[in-house]
Design a protein around this nucleic acid. Structure first.
Length: 561
RNA sequence: CGGGGCGUAGCGCAGCCCGGUUAGCGCGUCUGCUUUGGGAGCAGAAGGUCGGAGGUUCGAAUCCUCUCGCCCCGACCA
């Protein structure tokens, strides 16, 4: 490709709309442009890099028996009603419209329903299993807040794969294989990832892992143990809660605590530790109000809480909602509350004599003891693990980092096959539910992550496997000879099968060098009067400072890639 | 949806508080000449409904109201 013809201008300064390096560099390098928030056009250089990424993924998917298909982006709402996800998601991430006949259509944000429908009508014998289908396709999700350039967008390319198995054991086996394949893919694409246990969320299923690239720009929190290999998304991470020796249960008693409405205040005022108090946090769901009771030293994990009560959405209760249930914010007590769902963390059941609100302003109760003084509708672990806490598995110390979720895998089990009646005939001739797994990778997000992990102050440093072009060729200096020899080398390299971006413009050396650094192709070749004196070309890797000068007839770019 | 910030040329910004002819600067773009190993120099040129609408005023980029859009934090998020 001739630089003079390349569509997409580079910028000297990065646009003010971008804050994280990948966003700044992709904009500055003329690779992406925003249409509206969360929707980007990919210009030629980005498109080439994306193709490389896709082909790595295809290669790995095919290697474990995947077959590429393509399913519709626009789907009937009825399909989503079969699994109950329409009611759950419409008006949220799932966007849709009505066609001219008044039929409700949705823009698919994922394809579990579509693929299950496809397979239930195509696959009916155990002989056809296991089966893995995948596609590389646009998704639309009506994200409430797109951010960070390509990291969270509303419309994006995704590889989604779905596997079908005769039984759970085969799904387990395949899931482990896919886990390894994912590691291979990210390694080949030039980034380091770790897999973490994760929340299956609205996809559902029994087990899930996310593949995280550790990065400050990431939106997910990862809890990992320094002592063992435990790693989990903070949404689901477990920890060992500090034991509190609070003696034998003593009689409950009311104490005055004027103006002390936070755990911090109450603990200070009464001269006790936070772990000797009971914290009350209130959430509302569409059905009820949740009284979450947890020890004062621990915070509530909303994902765990959702799971404990079987809710898909919850939010902090408003003062108005609290008043309706007769609760006094700041002095709430789990004793004798009516009409609310009381969820008690196991830290509270394990610790007697806690200080809690008396449900009237200015008073707390001391020596609150679970089961003697109050009851729970649900007892569960609803605690939020944080860095510095103790690992539940080995007693080591947990650390907390941020990560970008570049991929995820789910064991769906029979969730979809059951809801959609997708069965196969077993060896015994009986219909059995299909066991399913699904596996996603966000392409644009992966592209951004690669840049996030591979850049310096001068620009992008593409890993050779995903670089838009392998070679950035240029001639510098005046005169017909450099230009002519540049042209010759350009033709020659392409004939040998190399992907070459040729800066054929009459620009000053500084301009060309700076841009080559910004665009970040792995290998830079420069022809100048100086190199031609010895019939040579200058060779420089983007990853290195040093340059080589090699004879033109001895040039073997492959050695540098 | 809540909080904060911002919309002036392709990009980066000044001007706004305190209203006053033809709205500025740098970069980029175009033309010519010079220059050619790290974002060159000189000369000239094009490019703006100051996000939009309404209002106040003799007069609005500037003040007021509404509205649209963008960024960040939170909520939310496979």
């Amino acid at each position: 490709m001739r630089r003079s013809q390349l569509f997409g201008r580079t910028l000297r300064e990065s646009p003010s709309e971008a804050e994280i390096p990948s966003h700044q560099l992709l904009l500055q390098a003329g690779m992406i442009r925003r249409l509206v928030v969360g929707m980007y056009s990919y210009l030629p250089l980005a498109q080439r890099a994306l193709r490389k990424i896709e082909n790595i993924i295809r290669d790995e998917m095919d290697a474990i028996g995947g077959q590429e298909i393509d399913m519709p982006l626009v789907q009937p709402a009825g399909l989503w009603q079969e699994t109950g996800r329409w009611e759950m998601l419409v008006g949220r991430e799932l966007a849709g419209f009505e066609d001219r006949f008044g039929r409700r259509l949705v823009l698919a944000m994922t394809h579990e329903e579509a693929v299950t429908d496809l397979v239930r009508n195509q696959t009916n014998s155990y002989r056809q299993l296991p089966l893995m289908l995948y596609q590389i396709k646009l998704k639309f999700r009506d994200e409430p807040r797109p951010r960070a350039g390509l990291i969270r967008v509303r419309e994006f390319g995704m590889k989604d794969a779905y596997s079908f198995h005769a039984d759970e054991a085969d799904l387990d086996r395949y899931y482990a294989e896919m886990h390894q394949v994912y590691l291979n893919i990210f390694h080949r694409a030039g980034i380091d990832v770790v897999s973490v246990e994760s929340d299956p969320g609205i996809i559902g299923g029994t087990e899930a892992h996310e593949f995280m690239m550790i990065a400050d720009a990431g939106e997910d929190k990862i809890i990992s143990c320094e002592g063992c290999d435990y790693r989990a998304n903070a949404d689901v991470a477990v920890m060992q809660k500090p034991q509190v020796n609070n003696g034998e249960p003593e009689p409950i008693d009311e104490i005055e605590t004027p103006g002390q409405t936070t755990i911090e205040d109450v603990a200070n005022y009464l001269g006790v530790k936070k772990e000797q108090t009971l914290k009350a946090v209130f959430y509302s769901t569409d059905e009820s109000l949740i009284f979450a009771a947890i020890r004062g030293d621990i915070e509530v994990n909303e994902t765990k809480l959702k799971k404990a009560v079987g809710a898909t959405h919850l939010w902090f209760s408003t003062d108005e909602e609290l008043r309706r249930y007769g609760l006094v914010a700041g002095y709430a007590s789990p004793i004798d509350v009516k009409g609310v769902t009381v969820v008690v963390d196991d830290s509270v059941t394990a610790t007697p004599n806690l200080i809690a609100g008396a449900n009237k302003p200015g008073y707390h109760l001391k020596n609150m003891t679970y089961s003697r003084d109050f009851k729970a509708d649900v007892v569960a672990d609803i605690s939020l693990a944080r860095g510095g806490m103790t690992c539940a598995h080995c007693g080591g110390t947990l650390t907390e980092k941020r990560g970008i979720e570049v991929g995820n895998i789910f064991k769906l089990g029979t969730k979809y096959s059951e809801a959609m009646n997708a069965t196969y005939l077993s060896q015994k001739g009986r219909p059995e539910l299909l066991f399913m797994g699904c596996y996603g990778i966000g392409l644009g997000r992966l592209l951004a992550s690669i840049v996030e992990a591979n850049h310096d102050e001068d620009g992008i440093i593409w890993p050779p496997t995903v670089a838009p072009y392998q070679i950035h060729l240029m001639h510098i200096g005046k005169g017909d000879e450099v230009r002519q020899r540049g042209e010759e080398l350009y033709t020659d390299l392409r004939a040998k099968g190399y992907e070459v971006l040729y800066d054929d413009r009459q620009e000053s050396p500084g301009v060309k060098f700076k841009e080559a650094d910004l665009l970040g192709m792995p290998l830079r070749l420069t022809i100048s009067q100086r190199t031609l004196e010895t019939d040579s070309v200058e060779v420089k890797r983007r990853t290195e400072r040093d340059k080589d000068v090699v004879k033109l007839d001895e040039l073997d770019p492959q050695r540098y890639l």
